[in-house]
Design a protein around this nucleic acid. Sequence first.
DNA 1: TTGAAAGCGATACCAA
DNA 2: TTGGTATCGCTTTCAA
Lengths: 342, 342
Amino acid sequence: MADRDAHPASSPTLEEVAAHAGVSRATVSRVVNDSPKVSPAAKLAVDRSIDMLGYVPNRAARSLVTKRTDSIALVISEPEARLFADPALAGFVRGIAEVLANTDYMFLLLTAQPDSARIARYMRNGHVDGVILMSLHGDDPLVTMLERQQMPAVLGGRPMGRKHTIPYVDADNVGGARAAVEYLRAKGRTNIVSITGPREMSAGMDRLTGFRRGLSKDDARDWRNRIAVGAFTEESGEQAMAELLERTPDLDAVFAANDLMAAGALRVLKAAGRRVPDDVAVVGFDDSVTARHTDPQLTSVRQPLEDLGRHLAKLLLMQLQSSDVVPAPVVLPTELVVRQSA
Amino acid sequence: MADRDAHPASSPTLEEVAAHAGVSRATVSRVVNDSPKVSPAAKLAVDRSIDMLGYVPNRAARSLVTKRTDSIALVISEPEARLFADPALAGFVRGIAEVLANTDYMFLLLTAQPDSARIARYMRNGHVDGVILMSLHGDDPLVTMLERQQMPAVLGGRPMGRKHTIPYVDADNVGGARAAVEYLRAKGRTNIVSITGPREMSAGMDRLTGFRRGLSKDDARDWRNRIAVGAFTEESGEQAMAELLERTPDLDAVFAANDLMAAGALRVLKAAGRRVPDDVAVVGFDDSVTARHTDPQLTSVRQPLEDLGRHLAKLLLMQLQSSDVVPAPVVLPTELVVRQSA
DNA sequence: TTGAAAGCGATACCAA
DNA sequence: TTGGTATCGCTTTCAA
C-alpha cells in the first residue's frame, strides 16, 4: 500500500520468530508465556530471536484467544468538566497507577457521567478484565451491572443503597469526622456547625454521621439546625458558610466535609470579618494540598489517599488472580492534622 | 470450567447474530460498520437481532484484522508519585477527556518515567492508534521513537532539543511571562527577580526568556543574577525564594514560573517578614486553583488549560482521520489575571 | 519436549 | 446487494 518504503516498522509475528529460531510457533508461544515445558536450548534460541527481531506479542490476537485483555478500567463517575477538580481524586489515581505500573495491566481512564450506558456496554463485552469505580453518586446502576456480570471490580468509597458484593475501599469517614468535632469541643468550642457533602454520596453522609456523633447530646438532637448541605466544591462551601452565618451568627467552629468547601468557608468568614481561628475555628477533611495553601493553613482530617488507591488496585488484582476470591472491604484510619485554622 | 452456571454473560458473536437474523456474517458486519451496500430490509432484520441479543462487537477480533485499536494513549512523563501533583495537568486531561468522550476512542493513561522502554515497546507494537505526550523533560527519546514509527502523536508543550515533525500545543509562555514582568514594571517595581522552571523543560525556559525580555535593558544584561532555578514544585519555590532573598535582599517583585512555586515563595516571604504586595509583589503562572487559595490571592498568568487539552485531542484526531495530514503547532495566548499579590 | 492444526471473532475480497 | 472464504496473530489441545 505504502509506495515509498514498505512497512517501516511493522512488528514481526510469532511465526517469523519461529522461522528465525528454527522451531515451531507453539514453542515460541511457550517461551513467551514461560511455560516450563521447553528445553533450555530451545528457550535460548527463541529468546535470542525475540530480541534480535524486537518481537512483541500482538495483544489483540492474544486477547482473542485468551479472553483476557490485560487492562483494567478506572471509571470516574463525574462529567469530564469536573474531572480531577478535587485534588483528592488525583491522590487515589496516583496510588492506583503506582501499583499497576508494576504489573502488565494497562490503565484505561473512563468518565461515566453523561453516558453511563456507553461505559456499561463497553465493559459488558469484556473489553477490560476488571474495573475500579470511583466517585459514586447515589445508587449507581453501573454497580449492579458489574455485579451481575460477575466482573471483577472494586469501589472507591462505600456505595450507597443496598448491600453489594463488590468490595470497596474507604477511609474511616465517620471516625475522622467525629474526631474533628471532638477536637473542637476539647478546644472549648461550643457552637459547632458543619458544611456537609452531598446527600447522595456516602462520604458526605458518613462524615455527617461522624459530626453528629461528635456533638454533645443536646447539640446532636438539634443537628439539623447545625448543618448546611454542600456539594464538595469550593463555591458550594462559600454558599453554605454564608447560610450558616446567617442562621447561626454566634457559631464558633465549623467542620467542613472536605478541604475545598473549607477553603470556600474561610473566604466567606474573612469577608464577614470573623477571625480564624480566634472567632471561628475551621476544620476540613482530606488534608489535600489545598489545606496547605489556605490562609490560615487548614486543620484537616487526613485520609491516606495514595494508600487507599494502592489498596484499591491490590484488591482488584487479587480478584483477577483467582476469580473466586471476594475480598472484604478495606477501611483505613484517618488522622487529624492540626494546623492553624483550629 | 465453571461448575454452577455456565457463561452467565458471554456476549453473542457476529455469527449468532447472523443466524438469528437469517443472513450471512458478512451482512451483519456491513450493518455494524454501517456500510451503504445493505438493503433496508436486511439492515432492519440485523438491527433487531443485534439488540435482541445484545450484541457488541469484540474489539480484539476487530482489531486483529483492521490493525486499529480505537484507543489513544496519554503518556505522562512523570513518575507515578508526581502524577497530577500539578493542578495544571488535571486541566489538560479534562480538556482531552472532553473531546475524546464524543468519539469512540478509549483513553489509556500511561506513566512513562521509571521505565520509558516499556511504554515504547507497548506503543511500537501498535497497541494504540495515537499518542498524546505530556510533561516532557529534556529531549525525550520517546519523541524520536514516535517519529520514526510514524505514529500519530501530539505533544503537550513545545519539545526541547532539535526540531521535530510532531505537532505540539502550547501556551504563549514567552509572551505571558513578558507581560507579567512588564506589568510589574508598570506598577513601579524596579528590582524584579524570577523563580524559573527546570532547565530541561521548555515551559521553564520559555518563561525565563519572557522574563528577560520584559526587563529593562540594564537588568536584562544582568539576568543571571536575578533568577533562582526551581523545579515547578512548591518546595523548590520555597528554596529558590530563600536563595533570592539572601542574594538580593532589596528585591521588590518576583515572577514565579508557576503557581505552585509562587505559593512556596509567598510562604517564605511571609516568614521573612516581607509584606505582599506592599514590600514585594508576586506573580505566578498557570492561574490554577492554587492561585485562588493563597493569601493574598495570586496574580497569575492564565493559560487556557482545558482549551489546550481540547486542541491536543483535536490535533490528534485530525491525524487519525487522514494519516498524511501534519498539523501545525498551536500556540494559545495567555492573559494576566490580576489579584492581590501584585 | 515438540509440532501440526484447530479455533478465537471479526473484516474484506471475490464471485455470484 | 449478498454470501463464501481467506486471513489477522496467537493459544492450546492432541499426537508424536
